[in-house]
């Protein structure tokens, strides 16, 4: 007997502890979010392990896929940051692949009848996770920016070649824009995942509502079902695109830090 029910649109985002853990009074339970982070990470590691097990001169299918990803991010980093970008490549690559895997695993349908704790969960649909990733990026930007440029890093807020009275306007705008970067970076990814999954659940909920109405009305259930299929396809695009955008914006911010003194 399978328990069929339409979950509320918010239910999918609930954090459910699987193994209760406590560290120095802080609750660090292994939750469904942790489970899917571990699943995503393990999948990446397995994939890369298979790809690099035998680094062949003529790559196989898996190795080709991994090399395409490598070249993609490598080109992105080189084109955006330049020669200084080489040392950030592992970070940007990890960021990209982690977000991509987390987003995509969130789109795997849950197995009906399994406990809610192991239902599909998208770690990146939680603001705290994306905010943490954004904060890591901004911390690297700040630390590297000050290490590389010293106090000249502040030239980032005052682009040269402007009439002097313009600075009164430009500098506050630049500062606000800089301060809003981590927030926009975090909220963009979070809101995309959040909104996409809510819309998916809403369509799925419509299907269940129409089916439960019974009779001929049930036939209308096909419309939201097709809608859910279309939204799932769109969500795959969004999942890949948001991982790419997060990586691109990280690169742009790092490029700012690397070239702040040249402004």
């Amino acid at each position: 007997m399978i328990d069929i029910r339409a979950a509320g649109p918010m239910e999918q985002f609930e954090i459910l502890p699987i193994i209760a853990l406590d560290f120095a009074g802080v609750d660090i339970s292994f939750t469904n979010s942790s489970l899917w982070m571990v699943i995503a990470t393990s999948a990446i590691v397995l994939f890369f392990f298979l790809a690099t097990r035998r680094a062949a001169l003529i790559p196989g299918r898996v190795q080709s896929a991994v090399e395409v990803l490598y070249e993609f991010v490598s080109d992105l980093v080189r084109d955006t940051i330049g020669a200084d970008g080489r040392k950030f490549f592992p970070y940007v690559f990890t960021l990209f692949i982690f977000i991509l895997a987390a987003n995509l695993f969130g789109l795997v349908p849950s197995i009906p009848g399994t406990p809610a704790e192991i239902h599909t969960f998208t770690p990146t649909s939680h603001l705290i996770v994306t905010l943490a990733l954004a904060m890591v990026t901004i911390s690297i930007v700040l630390i590297y920016g000050f290490w590389k440029n010293g106090l000249k890093f502040f030239k980032l807020f005052a682009p040269s070649g402007l009439p002097i009275y313009m600075y009164a306007l430009i500098v506050p705008i630049e500062i606000i824009s800089f301060l809003s970067r981590p927030i926009s970076l975090a909220v963009r990814l979070f809101a995309n995942m959040f909104a996409g999954h809510i819309i998916l659940k809403l369509f799925a909920g419509f299907v269940v509502s129409l089916l439960s109405a019974g009779g001929a009305v049930m036939l209308f259930g096909i419309a939201p079902f097709l809608g859910a299929v279309a939204v799932t396809a769109l969500e795959f695009l969004v999942a890949a695109l948001q991982a790419y955008v997060f990586a691109v914006l990280t690169c742009i911010y790092l490029s700012d830090a690397a070239h702040a003194a040249d402004h």
């Binding site: 963009r188 809101a191 995309n192 809510i198």
Partner: peptide, 27 residues
Amino acid sequence: QPTMLLAFALTEFTGLLGFAIAMIILY
């Protein structure tokens, strides 16, 4: 194309921010 996709993401963010605020208000 990358620039276009970037602009797409930046613009879409505005709408999603509204959506997220609506959800926060609702729930």
